[in-house]
Each structure stands twice: as C-alpha cells, then as structure tokens.
C-alpha cells in the first residue's frame, strides 16, 4: 500500500516536471519554428518571470499578482527585444545565436544589479495538501499542473483553430508565400517572439515556489527544454509534448529507481539513441 502510494506520488512528480518542461519548451519551439531563431536567452526569460513574482512581493502585491503579471511583463520585454535586436538579424542564424547569448548575459547582469546577486526567497501562494486517491499531494503542484495543461491546451487551440495560428503555421512552412498572401510577417514575428517569451515568463513565475531564485537559475531549464525540442522534432508542436513526456517522466521515474546522476545520464543516452534512429525527432516527418 505504501509502495503504491509512493509510486503514484512519483508519477505525479514526473507529471509536474513534464508539464513545466512543455510550457517552457513550447515557447522555444514556436520561436524557432516560425522565425528560425534559436533563443539562447529563453532561460533568462524564464528567470525574469520568477523575478516578476519577487518584484510584486517587494511592492507588497501577492504572489498571485506576480504570476498574473509575469507573462505580460516578460511578453512586453520579449517584444522590445524583437524590435530592438532580433529584427535586424532575420535569417542570420549565427548572428542571432550570438546576439541572444549576449542578451542572456545582459539580462543576468541586470537582474544582479536590480535584485542583488544572492538567492531570493519567494512567497508561497498556496501551501497545503490535497488528497489524491487517498494519498496526499501538495496542492500547489496540482494547481501548477492544471495551469500548465490549460495554457498548453490554449496554445494548441490558438495554433490549430484560429486565424492567428493559421498565419503562424503558414509562415513556418513558406514565409515568402505567406507574405504574398497579405500576411504581415514582421508583425507576426513580433507577436510570436512576445508570445514565446510570455510563456517562458509564466513558467518561471509559476515555478518560483519550487526553484532557487537566482540570476543564474535559467540554465537548469534551458538545457532541458532544448533537449525536449530536439527530441520531439523541430517544427511540430506535438513533438514538444512527446519530447517533454519522454525527458520529464523518464528522468523522474528513473531517478526513483537508480541514482539521480545515473538517471540523468541514462536519459541523455536514451535521447541520443532515439535521435540516432529518428534524426528528425520522435514526431519529425
């Protein structure tokens, strides 16, 4: 009975990591798919979301306000970055790589200047447990999963069921033809970059109670979400789901069975084997 309980808990633990990983990776995948930009500052956008919660706390607003404001703040910041930097580097992958890498350093330094170099404590919006099939599980984690699933569902809806999503998918496949069909591609790039940034910011804000808030913390999630995107297959939103489930559940379940270091290495090896046999990813054509 005890064993069953901790297995269920472990499954939920994996599901939490999976849903957060997918939320972060979707932004990365959309920006890459639509604009061809590999955003090395995506992890810092995540961190900016977390610091929005900290800033709200400093301003004596509740953590809920911070979570609600984070996608707006980080989305606007993303828009600024698009207009100020990315716009000048369309279709120059190497330059965008360098520029976003430089941007990540600038953001970290700015965070250090504004919030200090140290770890910041964050307010916890929702402590307590819920009962799941007779076992207790932190209520905030359940909330976290629910929000991630909802936002991911909305993102899919926008992509596959709205005019905006149709335009984005058209640009992904043939940007010249899209503009010849009266799609304002540079405005779409702007919205896409802002949207991807907002999703990273939301993920960061949601995760503040569960992570170390420091200027350097972005890289933990950036590396994994790159993994998710590559494993799932570039250019397919569904691939992000598959990649996220493989990376997140595998890591969590394995680290329950074997040592964490071996588990993380095993996930890497399994991913490399998958990519060896499916170079375009699990869902790539």
């Amino acid at each position: 009975m005890l064993e069953l309980g901790s297995l269920l808990t472990q499954f939920l633990n994996g599901a939490t990591l999976v849903s957060v990983l997918i939320l972060i990776s979707i932004g990365l995948a959309i920006i890459f798919g639509v604009m061809g930009v590999i955003n090395l500052a995506h992890g810092e956008f995540f961190i900016l979301g977390a610091y929005t919660v900290i800033a709200a706390d400093v301003l004596r607003l509740s953590a809920w306000w911070g979570i609600a404001l984070a996608p707006v703040v980080v989305g606007l910041f993303g828009a600024l970055v698009e207009v100020g930097i990315i716009r000048f580097l369309y279709r120059r992958p190497l330059e965008t790589l360098l520029a976003t890498w430089g941007l990540s350093i600038v953001i970290r330094q700015l965070v250090r200047i504004v919030f200090g170099v140290g770890y910041r404590a964050s307010p916890h919006p929702l402590l307590g447990d819920v009962r799941v099939f007779g076992f207790t599980y932190p209520i905030y984690r359940v909330f976290l999963m629910a929000v991630c699933v909802a936002v991911i569902a909305i993102t899919f809806y926008v992509f596959y069921r709205t005019d905006f999503g149709l335009k984005i998918r058209a640009i992904t496949q043939d940007v010249e033809m899209a503009s010849a069909l009266a799609i304002n591609t540079s405005r779409m790039y702007l919205s896409t970059f802002a949207l991807g940034s907002a999703l990273a910011g939301l993920a960061g804000a949601l995760m503040t109670p569960e992570i170390t808030v420091s200027p350097e913390a972005g890289v933990n999630f950036l590396a994994r979400s790159f993994f998710v995107v590559i494993l799932g297959g570039i250019g397919q939103l569904a691939g992000v789901l598959g990649g996220g489930i493989v990376v997140g559940e595998l890591e969590t379940l394995l680290s329950y069975l074997i040592s964490a270091t071996t588990a993380q290495a095993a996930v890497l090896v399994i991913a490399i084997i998958i990519i060896r046999f499916r170079p375009r990813g699990l869902f790539g054509g």
């Binding site: 309980g5 808990t9 890591e251 993380q264």
Partner: peptide, 19 residues
C-alpha cells in the same frame, strides 16, 4: 544519495524520505 549539479526537481528524494 547524491545529485548532479543543477537538478531542477528533487521530488523523488522527497518521496523516498517521506516513505
């Protein structure tokens, strides 16, 4: 048990401690 640097999620350890 020992964990690699920058582990984002320690819930499996927490789970084992709980049991």
């Amino acid at each position: 048990e020992y964990f690699p640097w920058n582990t984002p999620d320690f819930s499996s350890l927490v789970n084992r401690v709980a049991s």
